[in-house]
Simulated scan of single mutants.
Amino acid sequence: MTRPGNRPPSASEQKLAASLAGAVDLSGLKKRAEAKRDPATAARGTGPGSGPVTLVEVDEATFEQEVLVRSTQVPVVVELMSRRAPTVLTTLLSSLAEEAGGQWVHAVVDVDAAPGIAQAFQARAVPTVVAVAAGRPLADFEGEQPEDALRQWIAAVLQATEGKLSGTPGAESGGEPEEVADTERDAAEDALA
């Protein structure tokens, strides 16, 4: 490598460059390992020196852990989006999740990189947003929404899950989380009966 003035690097600069060669940031792997050991701690962000988890990027390999398992602790608002057509919704949901301080988690899925997830949610358009609680879809909408409407929608999701997930306020400690009411499923079961 040539430097300005064609001065060769000093011995200490060569040593530093050699020690950093191939260096990789492994903090993401550490966070994933901690989440697998204790999803409740990861969802609430009560691990040593960490704040609450408010945003996760999800792909097909991490979907089960980051969405299904985490949704037994707190609601997970899954945003199906495309990086080819970014929207303001991603930024707005991220800031609302951060403002909520871990009461719910914003999970971002790029449908171009993870088409199987979009197919599983039967998404017809992007962006599509789905609230997941106790491993099941609870509510959803398509397209951009104004901030006030988003706040109301999230408040309704939090109200529907209050005390039913082990990481939400009012939840009873221990035991299995209660099943979240699914009004559409209940109506369908009533119709079949």
Rank of each mutant, 00 (worst) to 15 (best):
A40E: 13
A114M: 08
L96H: 10
V67R: 00
P52Q: 09
Q159A: 15
P39S: 01
K30Y: 12
A33L: 15
A187R: 14
V126Y: 10
W104K: 02
D186A: 14
P75M: 04
A131C: 04
G116E: 13
A97G: 05
S10Y: 05
A100Q: 04
R136G: 01
T128Y: 03
A125K: 09
A181D: 09
V111H: 01
A113Q: 11
A42T: 03
A188K: 13
A125P: 08
S82F: 02
G102Q: 07
A42Y: 10
G47K: 05
A23S: 13
E178F: 05
G143N: 07
A123F: 09
L80G: 03
L150V: 04
E176H: 05
L29Y: 10
R37H: 13
V24L: 13
G5N: 09
V69C: 01
D190P: 05
Q159H: 15
V108H: 06
A97V: 05
S12N: 11
L158H: 12
L16A: 14
S12C: 04
V109S: 03
T87R: 11
D112Q: 06
T161C: 15
R32D: 12
P127D: 07
E60P: 02
K31E: 10
D182S: 03
R185T: 11
P146H: 12
E162D: 14
A134Y: 00
L192I: 10
R32S: 08
E144K: 10
G102L: 08
W153G: 03
A191T: 09
G163M: 07
L165K: 04
L150P: 08
P146R: 14
V129G: 03
Q14G: 05
A191P: 07
V76I: 02
V53E: 07
A188E: 11
A97N: 05
L89W: 05
S19W: 12
S71E: 01
Q159T: 15
R151N: 03
I117E: 06
E99N: 12
S82T: 09
R7Y: 03
A42P: 00
L26Q: 12
V74W: 02
V67F: 01
G28S: 13
V132I: 08
A40N: 06
A107W: 11
V53N: 03
T168E: 02
V105T: 13
E144F: 13
G28D: 13
F121R: 06
Q145A: 11
M1G: 14
V130E: 00
V88M: 09
T168Q: 06
T72L: 00
A100L: 02
P4G: 09
A181T: 14
A149P: 00
P169N: 08
E57I: 08
P52F: 07
V109K: 06
R37M: 11
A155Q: 11
W153E: 02
A120K: 09
A188D: 04
V126L: 09
E172N: 06
A156Y: 02
A18H: 09
V111A: 02
R7K: 11
K30H: 12
A156D: 15
T62D: 00
T91N: 05
P52K: 10
V132P: 00
S166F: 03
A100Y: 04
R124A: 07
V88N: 08
G102H: 08
R44Y: 01
P115E: 05
K15N: 13
E162R: 15
V77E: 03
G45R: 10
E172S: 13
E13R: 11
P75V: 02
A120M: 13
S173W: 11
S10F: 02
A85R: 15
M81C: 05
